[in-house]
C-alpha cells in the first residue's frame, strides 16, 4: 500500500517560488493499476519522483508498506528502490551500446543479485517481452517498440512490487504502444504488482483500475478509488 500524505514540493526561492505539487494526498492499495493523468507541467512527473524517493518534497510523507521513505537515508532509499521499484520512461533510456542482456542485467547487479542467479532471471524477463532471440543484440539495433519492450524487461527482471511508467507509449505508434501496454498490464496482473502510469493519454488511463486527475499541482478529481482521498486545498497565489 502506498500512502501519499500532504505532499508539497516547491522549486526556486522567495519571490520566484513555483509550487509543483501542493498538499496532495491519496492512497493506492497493493496490486492496483493507477493512472496519474494531467497535462505537461501539471506536476504529475514531480509526484512520481516524490513517490519513488527520487525527489524529496519539502513537506509530507510517502508511506510504503508502513515506512515513510522520505525519512530514510538516501542510501536506504536507493536500496529500497533497487529492491521494490522499477521505472519505464517515455524515451526508453536503454543503453544503446550495450547488449540486451546487459541492459536487463543492470537492475539485478544494482540489487546485488548473485551472478549465478542472474542469467535465469534475465532470460525469463526477455522471454516475457518476446526478446529472448535478441539477447546478444545491441540495444541500438532495436526498433522503438522493441526498445520499450527491452525497458519493460529491465523493469520487471527484479520482480518489483511497484512499477512506475512515465508516458510509456508516448514515443510509440498506437499498434506498438498497444503491445507495450499489454506487457505492462499483464505483468502487473500476474505478479499482483502496483502499476502507476503517468500520462496525458486518456485511452491509456482508461485501462487502469483507478485514476488521479492532476492539474496545477493539485488533485482535480479521482475515480476508481473505494474511498475518496482527503479533501484538497485550493492552489495559493
Amino acid at each position: 500500500m502506498i500512502e501519499v500524505k500532504h505532499i508539497t514540493k516547491t522549486y526556486g526561492k522567495k519571490q520566484n517560488t513555483f509550487i509543483a505539487i501542493n498538499d496532495v494526498s491519496f492512497t493506492i492499495p497493493n496490486g492496483k493499476s493507477v493512472a496519474i493523468l494531467g497535462k505537461s507541467g501539471s506536476g504529475k512527473s514531480t509526484l512520481m519522483h516524490a513517490m519513488s524517493g527520487l525527489d524529496r518534497p519539502q513537506q509530507g510523507q510517502v508511506v510504503i508498506d508502513g515506512r515513510d521513505i522520505l525519512k530514510l537515508k538516501s542510501k536506504d532509499v536507493d536500496a529500497f528502490r533497487a529492491q521494490k521499484m522499477s521505472f519505464i520512461f517515455q524515451s526508453f533510456f536503454v543503453q544503446a551500446n550495450e547488449s540486451c542482456y546487459d541492459n536487463v542485467s543492470l537492475p539485478l547487479e544494482i540489487a546485488k543479485v548473485p551472478r549465478s542467479k542472474r542469467r535465469q532471471k534475465v532470460e525469463a524477463a526477455l522471454s516475457a517481452v518476446q526478446l529472448l532471440d535478441k539477447k546478444k543484440s545491441r540495444a541500438r539495433d532495436l526498433s522503438g517498440g522493441q526498445k520499450q519492450r527491452l525497458a519493460i524487461a529491465r523493469a520487471i527482471v527484479n520482480e518489483p512490487d511497484i512499477l512506475f511508467a512515465d508516458e510509456p507509449t508516448g514515443n510509440l505508434d498506437s499498434t506498438t504502444g498497444g503491445v507495450v501496454e499489454d506487457f505492462l498490464f499483464n505483468y502487473a496482473k500476474d505478479r499482483g504488482a502496483t502499476l502507476i502510469v503517468v500520462t496525458h493519454d486518456e485511452d491509456l488511463a482508461r485501462k487502469c483500475d483507478a485514476r488521479i486527475n492532476i492539474k496545477d499541482g493539485v488533485i482535480e478529481s479521482t475515480t476508481g478509488f473505494a474511498e475518496r482521498p482527503t479533501k484538497k486545498k485550493k492552489v495559493m497565489g
Binding site: A82, P107, I110
Partner: peptide, 16 residues
C-alpha cells in the same frame, strides 16, 4: 548523464 540518471533511478547509490 542520462545513463547515470537511469542507474540512480534503478537504485544505484551515488557512491557506486
Amino acid at each position: 548523464t542520462q545513463q547515470i540518471g537511469l542507474m540512480k533511478a534503478l537504485g544505484m547509490s551515488g557512491g557506486d
